[in-house]
Design a protein around this nucleic acid. Structure first.
Lengths: 124, 124
DNA sequence: ACAACATATGAACATATGAACATAAGTTAA
DNA sequence: TTAACTTATGTTCATATGTTCATATGTTGT
């Protein structure tokens, strides 16, 4: 791509490109925020974690029950719950030796459903 | 976790666990859908792709301009645009040798903003 | 304190992923 | 057709990620 040339016919196009780049740069969300956003979506971007969240839509659950429900090991679930916890997508409460996990806020459901809408639109 | 035992005092708890597992399994979104959903969010879960989407919020752009805007190679951008294209998050139109990319539908913006809301809530 | 149970964590391994480089493919103008 | 330009793609490499296994931590009841 040529942004500096001596061809007069292309000067306008070049200027337009430079202008677009400049304006978009100014308007774009801060890089740090975008980085955090990508980190958040990365958490949603794993089928095990999505399944855990999906399960917690209907009931708070303990680690062992989630493992049984998804047919996975307790360890794998625990590791992923830690990721979900760090992203503040789930919260937990302890009752004796059992730890119950639940969805942390409504954004989880909303993000989840927007995603479903996108998928379903593609299935028209 | 013990689901079958002869301790009468714990029978109710056990039954409750089994009941929860059964009900959640019945209500949960189909596994295949959850898999697709994870794939979708995986696309959002990369800072380069998020930056591209963020840039396209403000203007359709050609590949080279996106590369300059983000300070990355044309190749890297093109590869990621292919991923975004496959996920139907962006569409493109060709004008001569230049290919302009744009956001494909409103779900992108909505998912993006729900994500921002979640992040900002954590910053209270 | 000890045994039994539920959950968390560390290490190792296999797989997945993103970026860069080189180059191919497609488009336009001369 | 050739040259110049824009975009797409194949390959390689370094790194990130998820699962398993073994074990640690924490809790309850005896």
């Amino acid at each position: 791509m040529k942004y500096f040339n001596d061809n007069l016919d292309k000067t306008d196009i070049t200027a337009q490109h430079l202008d677009t780049i400049k304006k978009v740069k100014q308007q774009m969300t801060a890089e740090e925020t975008l980085y955090d956003l990508a980190e958040l979506f990365k958490v949603f971007g794993d089928s095990t974690r999505i399944k855990i969240l999906s399960a917690l839509f209907y009931s708070e659950m303990c680690v062992g029950d989630i493992a049984i429900t998804l047919g996975m090991t307790q360890s794998a679930i625990s590791h992923q719950l830690r990721v979900l916890k760090q992203a503040k997508l789930v919260r937990y409460r302890r009752e004796g030796k059992i730890v119950y996990y639940a969805l942390d806020d409504d954004h989880v459901k909303q993000i989840f459903h927007q995603g479903l809408d996108h998928i379903n639109e593609g299935r028209d």
